[in-house]
Design a protein around this nucleic acid. Structure first.
Lengths: 254, 254
DNA sequence: CGTTACCTTGAATCTCCTCAATACACGTGG
DNA sequence: CCACGTGTATTGAGGAGATTCAAGGTAACG
């Protein structure tokens, strides 16, 4: 089956919104028929990028905004001398580039961690979304508020937690988000994160991150070799973080 | 003039939105007559609190959301053992508690730094704002996006900058915001910030903050004694921060 | 095989933290 | 008016925590 297209045919095959695999996940709310129709109209295409591609550059603008259909990306800011701070990760269902559409400039860069597929939405249509679909407009605001909430968690982490707590926080956060999206198999995830990226996320040097990680591994709370991360003792990591790591509840998808 | 009310009369006198002093500031966009009427309808009262009052508590909910009419507040999160991270400051024109209305729980606490006056908006009416006034709904999203943008700046600061750079960043940021709102006299502002609060903002201990501050003062870039902060050499501070500190452009007010 | 990207480890150094003590301003009650 | 408490600012000293430099080591890829 599914042999209608020849192998050589590289024409992209955009996923119709009605069949979007994300919408089946229970963390996304159900759309009405009208909303679904509008989203289909809103979506103007798909963008496929390979790992390492820059999706947005800090300080720029864009005629598009995106939603992650598959793959991982990360948002970051840099200082002139090269110091880099990771702000957050973007997983399937996340909005990307909303700041550019709303604020006229985006305050951070975004780079693909894995090969990614993005749904493309033209910026001009965002206004009609607000005009015609209050529910979807609310969803956009919701996504922004959740982003703000996560940034607050990260700021608390980077500002106040110690090295092992920071690592525990980030690993748990990513694991929880991945699990919500059905990206885990058992207690394992494919984490496309290098230690250097982790270091830039928690605000420590690579060396110190590595040493703390080594010490943390001895606790047996998790295994992380190669690209697969396995959560062995969730409670042990949570204890380090202090409280359950919030992920962001059940809500929308555009 | 203005003797219509007796001194003993303590009944609050809510500012009508049409005469809102903030609307005169050029950083706020102009409202149409309909928008102004709606905002007046949206606003259900004013809340006056003295310095030190808690406006929101992390993890709670509220039937109201607020806007700062006058005074300063700050948003923060705490760990169980008491470590505290300041996320951002709220100045006149800022939304407060939007997360509680959109996400159902607010992720941070908010406390008044000075005596404050807040405009009160009932949460239920937020939906009708989205339904009937696309422009205002967009403004709400804009405010959320700006908040996210500022949080990103702070995260970069706390994660990557060194002590003196962090202090320079925060002081400049607050000065710029205050200036935008006409809160400065010449190069001076009344900064209602203690060193302890600054320490919790930049993620350092009070002692280290104090010592870094001492060293920074010697550069002559600013004076900060008692509650008045005076920016003497803006360029010198900006050089420390690396680039001009963004404040958030010209846009809405609700 | 040689390159490249990532992980690991040791050693020296500096940054930042905690503890502790003092100083100053302010407001309160005696 | 003074004694006292409270909140804030300041300073020194010693130690823990992070950084940088430097050197391997390993796995993937052409």
């Amino acid at each position: 089956m599914a042999k209608a297209r020849k192998k050589a045919d590289k024409t992209p095959v955009p996923t119709p919104c009605a069949k979007c695999p994300l919408r089946r996940l229970e963390i996304f709310r159900k759309f009405s028929a009208e909303e679904l129709a509008f989203v289909s109209f809103f979506k103007s295409g798909e963008l496929v990028l390979e790992a390492g591609s820059t999706i947005f550059s800090e300080g720029t603008n864009s005629p598009h905004l995106y939603t992650v259909l598959s793959g991982w990306a990360f948002k970051y800011k840099t200082l002139e001398d090269g110091r880099r701070q990771v702000l957050n990760f973007a997983l399937p269902g996340d909005f990307i580039g909303l700041q550019a559409s709303i604020l006229d400039v985006i305050g951070h860069s975004i780079e693909a961690l894995t090969d990614v597929t993005l749904c493309v939405f033209p910026r001009e249509k965002l206004w009609s979304l607000y005009e015609k679909h209050t529910g979807l407009a609310f969803d956009v605001t919701w996504l922004g508020a959740r982003e703000e909430s996560i940034l607050g968690d990260y700021l608390l982490t980077v500002g106040q937690r110690r090295a092992n707590e920071r690592i525990a926080f980030v690993l748990l956060h990513l694991f929880h988000r991945a699990r919500q999206l059905g990206l885990t198999r058992g207690n394992a995830v494919a984490l496309p994160i290098t230690q250097e990226l982790l270091a830039d996320t928690i605000g420590f040097s690579l060396v110190h991150t590595n040493k703390t990680l080594k010490q943390l591994r001895r606790s047996g709370a998790f295994k992380w070799t190669g690209s697969t991360f396995e959560l062995v003792d969730e409670g042990k990591l949570e204890a380090l973080v202090g409280l359950t790591v919030p992920v962001g509840g059940v809500r929308p998808f555009i």
